[in-house]
């Protein structure tokens, strides 16, 4: 029995904590793809992204009993995702400096071109290009942009997830968008080469 779409994430999580597996399935179906995309755009390889994605859901499941709907479920869950990414970046020691998010020349931390989207044939050239541009963003700007695109979080909620001030997040998003615009323009000017 799948639950109705009108159920909030919070109520579904509470229902799952009480033993309702259908509630979890509904919740999972609702958030699996955005969260999956969040990971594959954040880390260097698709295998690693899948590992982190599984780990994130595993933590969500284990924490279900202690979940309290004080904050929105998305904030709570993406906070875990963020922590996982941070831990991963710290392990490989390739994290962009979180203080240097204004640095417009900072390249993406990884050679992320190894990611081959499974459905690339469906994508338009421009949206493909946008992905390359996103890869080149500094990590902190990329994360804010991805959260803004993949979730319905407000900037305040994003600032809670990434542990930054509201103003910082606002600035990061503005820089990210302006860099993406520049990147796409450059792509057109250079005739499809970046």
């Amino acid at each position: 029995m799948m639950l109705v779409q009108a159920d909030t994430d919070e109520s579904l999580m509470m229902a799952y904590a009480k033993g309702n597996i259908d509630a979890f399935e509904s919740l999972y179906a609702r958030h699996k793809d955005p969260m999956y995309r969040y990971f594959i755009r954040q880390v260097s390889s698709i295998e690693l992204a899948q590992d982190l994605y599984q780990e994130c859901w595993s933590r969500i499941i284990k924490s279900a009993q202690s979940y309290l709907p004080t904050a929105k479920w998305t904030t709570w869950a993406y906070r875990m995702a963020h922590n996982l990414c941070i831990d991963h970046f710290r392990t490989v020691k390739k994290l962009d400096s979180y203080d240097e998010f204004y640095d417009s020349t900072a390249p993406g931390s990884y050679d992320r071109h190894s990611i081959k989207p499974e459905y690339s044939h469906e994508m338009t050239r421009l949206s493909e290009q946008l992905k390359s541009c996103i890869e080149r963003l500094p990590t902190v700007q990329r994360e804010v942009f991805l959260l803004s695109q993949e979730t319905d979080m407000t900037l305040k909620m994003v600032s809670d997830v990434v542990s930054a001030s509201y103003e910082s997040v606002k600035t990061r998003l503005r820089y990210a968008k302006s860099k993406l615009q520049e990147c796409l323009q450059k792509y057109h000017v250079d005739g499809g080469k970046l």
Binding site: R37, P117, S127, E128, L130
Partner: peptide, 13 residues
């Protein structure tokens, strides 16, 4: 950007 991103966001778990 929103539209372009949506168009490209086709990866599924």
């Amino acid at each position: 950007l929103n539209e372009l991103y949506k168009q490209g966001a086709v990866e599924r778990s």
